[in-house]
Nucleic acid binder design. Sequence first.
RNA 1: GGAAGGGUACCAAAGUGGUCAAAUGGGGCGGACUGUAAAUCCGUUGCGGAAGCUUCGUAGGUUCGAAUCCUACCCCUUCCA
Length: 413
Amino acid sequence: MLTDEQQRELEKQWEILSRGAVEIIPEDEFKRKIAKSIKENKPLKVKLGLDPSAPDIHIGHTVPLQKLRQFQELGHTVQLVIGDFTGQIGDPTGKSETRKQLSKEQVRENAETYVKQLFKVLDPQKTEIHYNSEWLEPLTFVDVVNLAGKITVARMLERDDFEKRFKANQSISIHEFFYPLMQGYDSVALKSDVEIGGTDQKFNLLMGRHLQKEYGVEQQSILMLPLIEGLDGVQKMSKSLGNYIGIDEEPNQIYGKAMSIPDELMIKYYQLVTDLPHEEVQRMVKGLQEQAIHPRDAKMKLAYTLVRMYHGEEAAKEAEQHFKTVFQKGALPDDIPVVELEKEQLEGGKVWIVKLIVTLGLVPSNGEGRRMVKQGAVKINGQKVDDLDYEVNIEQDMVVQVGKRKFAKIKLQ
RNA sequence: GGAAGGGUACCAAAGUGGUCAAAUGGGGCGGACUGUAAAUCCGUUGCGGAAGCUUCGUAGGUUCGAAUCCUACCCCUUCCA
């Protein structure tokens, strides 16, 4: 039995940890684990698996990270599993190109940047870092066959994407079946108490429970968090889709990208990827629903918060100021990238407009450049240029703009 | 191993000897309107300042001319074994 104080602690932890979770499997077991941890004063081991092929973290990744942070603040331990072994095998998602294999050194290198970024959210003192090659690589073929024997094909085909592909008569490689097995085996090796992941991970997470039981290890509880949509508001945030906000990005970038998300997404972002106190988020949500707060202001606050989280208060203020002057007042930003031009590139001080914007790196090709000029997207010192044959008299500190966001300042050599 | 169908641009999908740098839709990009939101409207979407060049799985061939026909190869799917 718990003392009254312990009981209160349990309720508090449960309230915080279950907040925002889409599903907890099984709920009562998870609660019992927390209770036991409090009673025995023993932290829970909370596992999160990571894919080392994409070493840049975006705020989509921070959804589980924020949750882990909460675990840590309540005294629990985080087990980060870097899937270096898994990453060497291939691609489980059925996409056609095979993922390029990473060498061990690359993986370690990636992992380092990765971990550095992770610690912007997590507490290093309460984080263990593991590489799953540690226990997967030594397995013999017999071990692997035994592992495969713990599961049937029918069970495998329960997994959503396998099922779909199977029904659609699309190919499924045998090795893809090993992905969930390997991930599940990680939980066996680490004796994890809890594993967290996105809703898309449900099958893999459950596999961990299944295998732990098979191998006689206490089963982990599962805590599933929502996936977050990217800047387009439709697709899951991912690097390959380019709809992400990276936590290592420039303050102005983060601020700007945050401002461009659809309104409907704001609440989700507030709830899942900010570190604001629960009560404050609630106020915001209510304000928006009752239209007491202008969506634009709410979004600016969101943008501000995100910059503050990863670059600090000062940077957030500056980014906000920058946004106001550049986009709300239409002024020029004060940090325009300076591009140096060599004298040889100028013929008598004049350069063809299309060539100029290509040289400055504002557009990738002449064709694209021509289009931009034709469409009135090009400005020189604030003056629109839509004459395709225009020859520019290059001057020192001339500012060239393409579209709303791309600027360059010319420096003559 | 056998038989059949298929591989077209960022994606989906037309095109089956010239008028095809390749319809249409989605996505992207730019402009207008706004709040760098949504919705809407307009434009644009291989490279090249032009002549032209390269592109329809890969390599050859037929032809004045090929995404389209022929040959070989690679890959995917289905059915049979």
